[in-house]
Design a protein around this nucleic acid. Sequence first.
DNA 1: TACTCACAGTAACATAAGTTACAGTGTTTA
DNA 2: TAAACACTGTAACTTATGTTACTGTGAGTA
Lengths: 210, 210
Amino acid sequence: MIQELKTSYGHLFEDALINEIIQVGTYKEIPEGHKMMEIGDYVKSMPLLISGAIKIMREDSNGDELLLYYLEKGETCSMTMACCLGQQKSEIRAIAETDAKLIMVPVSKMEEWTKNYKSWRNFVFESYHNRINELLTTVDSIAFYKLDERLIQYLKEKARINNDHRIKNTHQEIAYDLHTSRVVISRLLKKLEQLGKIELHRNFIKIINL
Amino acid sequence: MIQELKTSYGHLFEDALINEIIQVGTYKEIPEGHKMMEIGDYVKSMPLLISGAIKIMREDSNGDELLLYYLEKGETCSMTMACCLGQQKSEIRAIAETDAKLIMVPVSKMEEWTKNYKSWRNFVFESYHNRINELLTTVDSIAFYKLDERLIQYLKEKARINNDHRIKNTHQEIAYDLHTSRVVISRLLKKLEQLGKIELHRNFIKIINL
DNA sequence: TACTCACAGTAACATAAGTTACAGTGTTTA
DNA sequence: TAAACACTGTAACTTATGTTACTGTGAGTA
């Protein structure tokens, strides 16, 4: 854990802070697909992601879903932070997109570190900033782009996150993430295949040239 | 200025911090419609809103616009904060929705205050948290609701912000905010009128029962 | 007054996306 | 092996939204 923490966060945090994290943090390994947080949960610790990716989803009152963004190595969940501090319920759902390793830090330390460590303050602010920018990108995507373009963005991002040009998902799963229906996704995917950009197979999609 | 600062922020900030703000802050009055920040601007001071409302807009590369949310009394612009700290360009546009009064605080103080004042830390975190929640609401709105419902939400919010049941905007202006076309807005407004929810007039809309 | 202009109403049509229904084909399970 | 199931393809239709074009009307202005 110590080595991995230093690899992912050593360039961000002072040594003293790294040591504190080692003292109070808990190392965790999460399997792909595991639901790490549900809407309405109260949260008492904050994740520092060491490897893998976490998928952050929004859901409305009818159960309709939408993918917001992914968290990656060296990042944390600002919303968790906000929830911790404000004692509020989570507004989002978090699911491990890949196997993931992370360190959980108890909320109780946050106030103290924010006061004492400049590098922690920077990290927290940068984290908020990044999350806001991700949300703006999500807004752009749904407000300004049509579904075919969003689908292309989605496939590219998914390939990047999983480091694999095969997208191992069904059309139905993609439809959930983009908040549309399976038939619509099949239709658009077929168009992309006809354009030579992808190859369709059962349970996976091979990216050729997006 | 001192009295207004205390009225709006006295319950949030320690006296010592209030005094510091008075030392370094600049009082400003902004007329309705004034563009306070443009996409791409660099920002060197942070606004603390004392009265009025600020409209925050997003714009994509084609010049298409979308209203994100409003800032009100007691709030600040987290994105400005993030920009200040990270020396980054603004991702959004800010326009005074009503006449507004605010205090501008130079960025240079922020790091110091975050270190020294617990109330400032809380304010900053709460501010980020609120902004993220506003953005989630915006995402919900465009992802999960149809235009007629979004229009109703928009009219209600506008009436609340301006404290006026007459919405003094043209259909074209509303269309810009919701990122659609004038014809579509006219059509939907006419339907709402036929349902007895609003009254349409030249250059304003009277809300009856939304 | 006559002209111009901004604003709103509306029809007619185009397109993107959602919906329903059903067929075909691999995969898993009884 | 036969049945059940999951996944994909596709047609046909509906609906929401976008687009174009034209009209009428009130407000301001030459």
